[in-house]
Simulated scan of single mutants.
Amino acid sequence: MLQLINQLFHKGIQNISPCLLCGIDKQQQHSLCTDCWNHLPWYKQHIERHSQHILCAHHYRFPMDRIIQTYKYEQQLQYQNLLALSLLNLRLPKVQAIVPMPISTDRLNERGYNQMLIIAKIMARELKIPVWQPVIRAAQHSQKGLTRIERIENIENQFQMIKTERRKYKKVLMIDDVVTTGSSIHALTQALESLGCQQVHTACIAAAE
């Protein structure tokens, strides 16, 4: 009953709230008006990084680049529905769980939240599947000045399995915000495969050029 009341309340707020981008027309479920939603830099294609196919919702350009940056670094959490529904708008594979890209404890303390975990929880409610976090991330060191091989090794060493995690899933969807080199995605995929995952699909909000 309480959940139904909350849903009706948020729907009512949306009906009177202006679009987060233009501020003129009323926002829909994704927090934008229909026109602004349709004019986002949609991509909806796969890119390949480290022999992995990554499904990307948008190009990493205005206004998505600014939206992701403010959501991630400036605690502008009002964009969470927009970003989650951008991923849900894709033709996602059927999986058993969603795995958000982990961040280190230092980054978590600095920001106060894992931006992808928030989005994963929204997606999990819509898809009716659990969020799975079987891997933690050690301190994220700067990649500046490292060779390509050194960068990959540096990232691979950051991911550590949680030994107390008993749940196991064979088909999972890993989500991240922006894909550039794909090194973090590759490293997390390897960690998940070592835990017994047979199919690790990946979706990102935006693909950098």
Rank of each mutant, 00 (worst) to 15 (best):
H201C: 09
L82G: 05
Q140M: 12
T181P: 06
Q78N: 11
Q76C: 00
Q3L: 07
V178C: 06
N6Y: 10
N154Y: 06
R137F: 12
H53P: 11
K94Y: 07
I162N: 15
T189E: 12
L55P: 03
P100V: 02
Y73F: 14
H186D: 13
Y79L: 05
F62E: 15
Y113H: 09
H59Y: 12
L90S: 12
Q140A: 15
F62G: 04
G145H: 09
Y73H: 14
M116W: 01
T164P: 07
Q160L: 15
Q133Y: 00
T105W: 13
L21Q: 03
R125P: 04
H50F: 10
E156G: 02
L4Q: 15
R151S: 04
T70D: 09
D65K: 09
Q29C: 06
T189Y: 00
Q160C: 14
G182D: 01
A187Y: 02
H46S: 07
T147M: 02
K44I: 01
L192K: 04
C36S: 00
I129S: 08
L192R: 01
G112R: 03
I13Q: 13
L192W: 10
S51Q: 13
K144S: 13
P41E: 01
I24N: 13
Q52G: 08
K11M: 12
I47N: 06
V135C: 08
W37M: 03
N154K: 05
N15I: 10
I13G: 06
L88C: 07
Q14W: 12
Q140N: 15
C56H: 08
L85V: 11
D106I: 06
Y43N: 05
E153G: 13
L4H: 14
P63W: 08
H50G: 00
S184T: 14
L195W: 04
K44C: 13
G112D: 03
I185V: 13
M174K: 02
L4R: 13
L88Y: 15
P102G: 02
N89T: 11
L21D: 00
I175F: 05
W132N: 03
Y169H: 06
I16N: 01
Y71I: 06
V135R: 07
Q52H: 13
Q14L: 09
Q160S: 14
R166I: 14
Y73T: 10
E150N: 12
V99I: 14
A187R: 03
A120S: 05
T181I: 00
